[in-house]
Amino acid sequence: MRKFLGPIVLNVFAWTTILAVAFPLFWMLVTSVKPQSELFRRPPTMMPEVWTFEHYWHLLTQTNFLVYFRNSVMLSTVTTLLVVTVATLGAYSLVRFRYRGRESLAFMVLFTYLLPSVVLIIPLYLMLVSLGLSNTLFSLVIAYTTFALPYALWLMRSFMAGVPDDLEYAAMVDGASRMGAFVDVILPQLLPGIISTALFTFILSWNEYLYALVLVNSDDARPLTTGVMNMLISSFNIEWSLLMAASVMMSVPLIIVFAFLQSYLTRGFGAGAVKG
């Protein structure tokens, strides 16, 4: 009897907690497909009585959402490409080469990885304003490298350390140059690590708020985070359904990653965050 009941109790307990944790996300989805009139019903309906996608339609056609979305896609893509390229080369150098100052560089990477944005933001703001770059997506790319590059380097370093030395040497014995060996032997081995670093960097940039808040003040260059937040602040009547629809849409890239590439996320966790 105990053998039979134990797992059931455990499962019921486990799933109650898990669903409680996930409830706000469920509630976001439900709210986004309820008609405005149903939203203010008491008691609230757990599942929408009438399903509607009018809020999504409204969001896409009558707000700046698509502009923000495009900005976010461009911003995150450019940042990711730049950062992952630089970090891959940098990590290769930090792990596989011997030169003076290498140890202090590695230390600096870790230090900057932990650095708070609010310390950098004031001088960065002054710098970008004096360069005439404020209110551009490019200024955000520059600002985002301050946190994305240390992060990507830190991840790539530990992925690089996981690629066995012998492969590289074997290729060089066969006559490949050092960079030839890097491209032919190391890069393929490193690919899963590169993918997971790219995913993390992309998500990090996609979700960034503070720099976007300070550096960009025009709708043309505003990414989703500050753009959607503005919809909350500037509206006289808060339209919760619309905001929930925006939240869902904003999480779409993440949902895609979760559905298809989740193993890369877990791998990144293991490599970067808690290697101890």
Binding site: V21, A22, P24, L25, W27, M28, I203, W206, N207, Y209, L224, T225, V228, M229, L232, L243, M244, A246, S247, M250, S251, L254, V257, F258, Q262, L265
Partner: peptide, 14 residues
Amino acid sequence: LFPYFISTVVAVLV
């Protein structure tokens, strides 16, 4: 895992 990866903006709105 999901709450960790969603944007803080989304979390706060919800």
